[in-house]
Computed example of a mutant assay.
Amino acid sequence: MSAMIDWQLERNAFGRLELTDAAGERHENVVPVRAFPIAAPEDGLSLVSQDGHELAWVDRLGDLPPTVREMVETELGSREFVPEIRRLISVSTFATPSTWTVETDRGETQFILRGEEDIRRLAGSTMLIADSHGIQFLIRDPQALDRHSRRLLDRFL
């Protein structure tokens, strides 16, 4: 069921989002921002002006009309890059820095873990791992990883 919204969202000729509010005022270069991008990615979304002011709040992404939701999801996808680790294939050493070879939802890759402090626990058992370039890798549920992956990860926790 789509939510009633009192604003319109569209793409301009340059591909950027524009929001027209209930008063008819047009806002250019609107950016969608998730309130809880990892813990609750479908809940709580703000549409923010280029100067950082909230223009609209969306309780649930799935409640938006399909065309608006598609625009918002496309914009979020182009801005958010947090590969999810599905499997740890190998680590070069159990001391840091070490090179990790992992399989993610975006394919196989390698990154360098500088230190154990770059592995952060979030809500529940979710973890974020920052590589040496600042890219964040997500592990939603370490217990859901295969045995080999859990064993490698445990050596760094």
Rank of each mutant, 00 (worst) to 15 (best):
S46N: 08
I38M: 01
R79Q: 14
V72E: 02
E25G: 00
T96N: 14
R120Y: 07
E54T: 15
V82A: 03
F94Y: 10
N29P: 02
L64W: 03
L55V: 04
A130Q: 03
D51F: 05
R60H: 14
M71Y: 07
G77N: 06
M1K: 09
H27I: 07
Q8M: 05
Q110D: 04
I89W: 07
R86G: 00
E117C: 06
L19Y: 00
F111N: 08
D43T: 14
F156D: 05
E73T: 07
A95T: 09
S92H: 11
R106S: 14
A40C: 02
V33R: 15
R87T: 11
Q8N: 11
V30P: 04
L138C: 10
F14E: 15
N29T: 12
T126D: 05
R79C: 04
D154M: 08
S132H: 15
A13V: 10
E117A: 15
P41S: 11
S78V: 12
E28F: 10
L76H: 09
V68K: 04
I89H: 12
P37K: 09
E116T: 11
E28Q: 13
T93V: 05
S49H: 12
S2T: 14
R86H: 09
A23M: 04
A39Q: 00
I38C: 01
L145Q: 03
F81K: 15
H27R: 10
E70G: 00
T74I: 01
G115I: 08
G62L: 10
R120M: 11
E10M: 08
W57A: 14
H133Y: 09
L9Q: 04
S49Q: 11
E80K: 10
R121E: 05
P65I: 00
P32H: 12
T109L: 07
L128E: 11
V48P: 00
G124S: 05
E108W: 00
S78E: 14
I139N: 06
R26K: 15
F137G: 01
W7P: 06
L128Q: 13
E117F: 08
H133D: 14
F94W: 10
D105Y: 03
E25F: 03
N29V: 03
P37R: 13
T96K: 08
V30T: 06
S149N: 10
